[in-house]
């Protein structure tokens, strides 16, 4: 009978585990929904007309991040805090998207690189693992890399919209980012692959700047963050 009891105990554990995962999955779905909404708000910056609306779009996005914080607060209640990495895979993807969105908003607002602390604050989570539900450094970095690729698109669309200064500012920003990433020793993992993509973003932006240069359209940006 002891064997049976043992398996009952384990089965109890497995069931509980599945329930937790099911709960997590549901909250994560709502998070994904909100993330898509924020993305839709921010996508408009790529439109010719969208450049002027950046401040209002950022405000709109900031409001949606309130929802995110509520949803993440809900997520935190679904599992014991010290088992973060046990369930990490469930929210890793959406957390990286949210880090990207936070980084994008901050960039649009101030043209600076969001810090891990800021992202954590925007999402209502911790930076330090010991303190609770936190933002893994690799997830933060992944979010930043997604933004880099969005910025290369923005550089292209800025030109279409007739804004010839922005690409140069993006170029400076992305080059600094690239230098930062070069300092890291990455394993052969998804982050490494994403980082390889950064080189192409840098290259694309460099090409835009080049196109502007040879046409005499690029002026050294005197006043970065000219909004």
């Amino acid at each position: 009978m002891s064997v049976t009891e043992m398996f009952s105990y384990i089965q109890g554990f497995l069931s509980a585990d599945q329930d937790v995962r099911e709960d997590i999955r549901k909250v994560v779905q709502t998070l994904e929904q909100t993330a898509r909404e924020i993305l839709t708000v921010l996508q408009s910056v790529h439109q010719p007309s969208g450049f002027k609306e950046i401040p209002s779009k950022c405000t709109k996005a900031r409001e949606l991040f309130c929802t995110v914080r509520t949803q993440i607060a809900d997520l935190k209640t679904k599992f014991p805090v010290e088992q973060y990495y046990r369930f990490h895979e469930h929210w890793r993807f959406v957390l990286q998207r949210l880090a990207f969105l936070a980084a994008f908003v901050v960039y649009l607002e101030t043209e600076t690189l969001v810090t891990r602390e800021e992202v954590a604050q925007i999402l209502g989570i911790e930076v330090v693992r010991e303190k609770g539900f936190h933002l893994d450094v690799e997830d933060y970095l992944a979010g930043v890399l997604i933004m880099a690729s969005e910025l290369s698109r923005l550089a292209v669309n800025s030109v279409t919209a007739g804004d010839y200064n922005r690409p140069l500012r993006i170029s400076n920003f992305i080059n600094e980012l690239d230098s930062g990433f070069r300092l890291l020793n990455l394993k052969n993992d998804p982050l490494r692959k994403r980082y390889d993509g950064l080189k192409y973003d840098v290259k694309k932006i460099e090409e835009v700047v080049y196109d502007l240069s040879i046409r005499g359209l690029a002026k050294e940006p005197e006043s970065v963050g000219d909004k």
């Binding site: 080189k199 192409y200 840098v202 290259k203 460099e206 080049y210």
Partner: peptide, 11 residues
């Protein structure tokens, strides 16, 4: 290859 793409990006 990585070095090549980086080079282009760095002008």
């Amino acid at each position: 290859m990585r070095m090549c793409i980086s080079s282009v990006g760095n002008g």
